[in-house]
Design a protein around this nucleic acid. Structure first.
Lengths: 225, 225
DNA sequence: TAGATTGTTAATCGATTAACAATC
DNA sequence: TAGATTGTTAATCGATTAACAATC
């Protein structure tokens, strides 16, 4: 696979995950797809589909379209989920529990290798995946041992603590070498710029939805005093 | 409050939810904030902050800035969460259970008034919030009764079924008058255009994060064969 | 009044799309 | 070869930002 050196926008990466999901669905029916069909499902233009994909290389066949299996493989590789990526979950409340026990929710390509909490009532308890909830205070040691014993370098975490603890917990993670955080809390994390944070704020999304629900008369907010 | 008639972009609404979250945090320290401070926390420019807010009216005081409490109240109203908005949850697996039992996760302004599943093992069971899991097949009746008995018009749902059921379940909801769906599944829903869907795909977000984690050397993917 | 910060206009930047030569 | 669809360029559109008059 040939990858171009290029500035890649967040938008393109977001759509890449959508293409992957659509292609996995489409593969049940067909073995090929073209940019027009893909665009229709994506609610966009075929030009955008082709441009997005061409960011990463030439994957199509002129006159025919794209081989679905091939495209799935390529996008899978671009997103780095052709291998298994190790993740730790921090916080074992309702959210952390759901994430660790619902196998489907993280999707393929990710493996939970540690679950942490600061609550003594939870530490030591058996969680899903044959994992025991560990003391968050031992996270540095855990990461170090993983590196030494198995040569596994952990740098990705899912943050699922209560929002009051989010900032301080995140800082602790960063101190211990975590550089990628999926933030499931409502807290806006303020961390070093080279730490990549992706926010997953359910309440914010619900607020968005509610805005559009209220202002759904196509076009939209009336002038009112 | 004066609301301007205007095309509002999804981006602006997204940021509105962020401003709200930041302002709620800031209110603990201060009673006023200006666009420069707000921009710094948001990682953007003061111009964007002022432009975003001015989409909805004139809320600042020249020479001073914005009153935090006032701005919170205004954004709260714009997002429609100054009142309580009724939501139903469809699917009472790990995800649905988490959503209905974790009070914080939906945030203020939303109330779960019904929980549904199609699984006979789950129907009739007591869930959180003193709600009993109802048969999804009775959802039409439930919505009709709510309308007749309490004049509550339900049109917002959180879809938390397994992805194989997502499309068919969503269609059922729409048939019964739901026009706003927070989609917690990985499935890309294909519904009538006037149904507003907001996707909340954890695995997709994790894929995104993983991409940036892998390609985090500031600038970024190398040319390679 | 002087200093500060808003709201808004105009300039810039980046993302989307139309169009088409390349090519299967 | 004729028909189709890609990959890419150039045009368009929309979003961000700089700059500044308005005004507290």
């Amino acid at each position: 696979m040939r990858l171009k050196k290029l500035e890649i926008s967040e938008r393109v990466v977001q759509r890449l995950t959508e293409y992957l999901s659509i292609l996995k669905e489409a593969r049940k029916q067909d073995s090929e797809i073209n940019s027009i069909e893909l665009a229709k499902i994506m609610n966009t233009t075929s030009a955008q589909v082709r441009k997005d994909l061409s960011t990463f290389g030439e994957f199509g066949v002129r006159g025919k379209g794209y081989d679905i299996d091939n495209l799935i493989e390529i996008i899978t590789r671009i997103l780095g989920i052709d291998k298994t990526n190790d993740v730790i979950i921090v916080g074992h409340g309702k959210m952390g529990e759901m994430l660790s026990s619902n196998l489907d929710v993280l999707g393929e390509g990710f493996k939970i290798i540690g679950i942490f909490d600061k609550d003594n009532d939870k530490i030591g308890k058996m969680a899903a995946n044959n994992l025991v909830v560990q003391d968050i205070r031992n996270i540095g040691e855990f990461i170090k041992n993983m590196k030494n014993d198995s040569n596994i370098k952990i740098n990705m975490a899912i943050l699922a603590v209560v929002k009051e603890q989010a900032q301080i917990a995140a800082e602790g993670l960063v101190k211990n070498g975590i550089s990628a955080i999926l933030n499931m809390t409502t807290c806006k994390l303020e961390l070093d710029k080279n730490v990549k944070v992706v926010d997953m704020d359910i309440s914010a999304k619900l607020q968005e939805l509610n805005f559009w629900r209220i202002n759904n008369t196509e076009n939209n907010i009336d002038e009112k005093i």
